[in-house]
Design a protein around this nucleic acid. Structure first.
Length: 485
RNA sequence: GGUGGGUUGGCGGAGAGGUUACGCACCGGAUUGCAAAUCCGUGAAGACCGGUUCGAUUCCGGUACCCACCUCCA
């Protein structure tokens, strides 16, 4: 069996991955707060850890991995969005508008992540469905002395957990010295964080031993992970920005509430995404969503390819240049698929995934190394020069395994071009026949003139020993064909 | 102020204490009537300053610059 190695944030080392139970490898990924469209940065962990899940399923078996990714559907930003809608005249109670908003956002999220080729998790728990578990957990923490209730709040007592700060390499004292912590009158210690907070009449709330209120951030992940994966599970992942405070607080809560469990054995964090060398932010005007890109005709596979070019533990820069290069590469593979498979629509089952690709992934998800292997395979497929060669089958099986099933990066544009040009097919073929005739007659100047004009009009021509083939390019412009006639 | 990450050839981007990463671009060659596509090949690097070592881009220390987190942004 392939030995997977992963860089564990908890130990700051690359270590052999040994599942607690190989029959059920358990993985938790922090999901989105569903108040708006996912921006491009939100997509990075989804794609990166989708690859991890694919690897785990490949190694341990498709039915031996449990993948959980939550939806945080209780949050002040959601409340604000719902309130804005109500003030804009939307009908319904605030609770209804909140539900509407989160439901709609989850639908968007699914559509966008599907487009990126990211498989759906086995469980997608919503925080509001686990309020009871959160309350039970908070009660236990209070009973054990790890938390306290004050003024309608429940707060975690950071000093009661000796290892607080271990994951992120911080000490409580240093952080307080940094003087950037919120000091609230009801806190025993400035670092204590909120488990439960009161809701007034204008906010969603649930009855609790501390009054009507809503959960703080952090507790939902602890409660849902415990409910669905148990006291101890294998891997917990998310963006590096969650390392502190979110994951640190999750650990503290879970370790204190379930002292016999280990919570997550391995912690994985992806580095952040930048855009053209800068942080993506609304103020810089370089903020955009996954949907924005998809709507521009950039398929999810292109986004996925660009993501996999950079190792997940390094900052990744989204650039126009990379986008264009990815389109070129995938288009080339699409062309190769048409040429090297007797049935380009053939479905693959993952039985011929390349071993070197698996080895590269097993080495801490080294996706750039995977691409290097794919380039080598590409050349081998070219050299095989016959349809359905073993290397071709393996190559496209591997691509599908990696989440690249549709390689036609220009399908939207091409589809439009073909539709627009449907009545020009005969004309193009007539012209190509004329070129062929001219070549036969060795009238090369006429043949080349026809070819150049067709190319200029957006017809791709490929001459091989077996003959010529052609296709409409996405930029096909029928009007230009008039120049040929 | 504290913490973490980064700095590799024109661009993107890895591994390894000593032997070609790889891709794109460029250049040369093969193929082609000429192109395109494809194949083969050359050149080009390791922010800066020290240290360890027979030998460092790879280990250690320092400096500079960039990014992020410490503010419910993945």
């Amino acid at each position: 069996m392939v030995q997977i190695r992963l860089t564990n944030t908890k130990t700051r080392r690359k270590e052999d991955f040994r599942p607690i139970d190989p029959e059920n490898v358990r993985f938790y990924l922090c999901g989105p707060t569903v108040y708006d469209r996912a921006h491009l940065g939100n997509a990075r962990p989804v794609v990166v850890f989708d690859v991890l899940v694919r690897l785990l399923r490949h190694v341990y078996g498709a039915d031996h991995v449990t993948y959980v990714r939550n939806f945080t559907d209780v949050d002040d930003k959601i409340n604000a969005a719902a309130l804005a809608r109500q003030q804009a005249g939307a009908p319904g109670t605030l609770e209804e508008l909140i539900r509407e908003r989160t439901q709609e956002t989850i639908g968007w999220y699914h559509a966008d992540m599907d487009a990126l080729g990211a498989a759906r998790p086995d469980h997608e728990p919503r925080a509001t469905d686990y309020i009871d578990q959160m309350i039970a957990m908070i009660e236990k923490l209070i009973a054990e002395g790890h938390a306290y209730a004050r003024d309608g709040h429940a707060l975690f007592r950071v000093r009661s957990y000796a290892d607080y700060g271990k994951l992120s390499g911080r000490s409580v004292d240093d952080m307080i010295a940094g003087a950037r912590v919120e000091v609230a009158p009801f806190k025993e210690d400035p670092m204590d964080f909120v488990l439960w907070k009161p809701s007034d009449a204008g906010l969603p709330g649930w009855e609790s031993p501390w009054g009507r209120g809503r959960p703080g951030w952090h507790i939902e992940c602890s409660a849902m992970a415990h409910e669905l994966l148990g006291e101890s599970f294998d891997i917990h992942a998310g963006g590096i920005d969650l390392q502190f405070p979110h994951h640190e607080n999750e650990i503290a809560q879970s370790a204190c509430a379930h002292p016999h469990g280990e919570f997550a054995r391995v912690w994985l964090h992806n580095e952040m995404l930048q855009v053209e060398g800068k942080k993506m932010s609304k103020s810089l005007g370089n903020f955009f969503t996954v949907r924005d890109l998809l709507d521009q005709g950039i398929p999810g596979e292109v986004i996925r390819f660009v993501f996999l070019q950079t190792h997940y533990r390094k900052p990744m820069d989204w650039t126009e240049e990379k986008r264009i290069a990815a389109v070129g590469r995938l288009s080339k593979w699409d062309e190769l698929k048409r040429r090297s498979l007797s049935d380009p629509e053939r479905a693959f089952d993952g039985s011929m995934v390349d071993h070197a690709v698996i080895d590269a992934l097993a080495d801490d998800l080294n996706t750039p190394e995977v691409l290097t292997r794919l380039y080598a395979m590409q050349t081998e497929v070219m050299l095989a020069r016959k349809p359905d060669s073993e290397i071709a089958l393996s190559f496209f099986d591997t691509l599908q395994f990696l989440g690249f099933s549709n390689l036609d990066t220009q399908r939207l544009l091409r589809k439009q071009a073909v539709e627009k040009a449907a009545d020009k097919v005969n004309l193009v073929e007539t012209l190509l026949q004329a070129r062929s005739d001219a070549r036969q007659a060795r009238d090369f100047s006429r043949a080349d003139a026809i070819r150049d004009a067709l190319v200029a009009a957006g017809v791709e021509i490929n001459d091989t020993a077996e003959g010529s083939s052609w296709s409409f390019a996405p930029n096909f412009d029928a009007d230009r064909l008039k120049d040929v006639i």
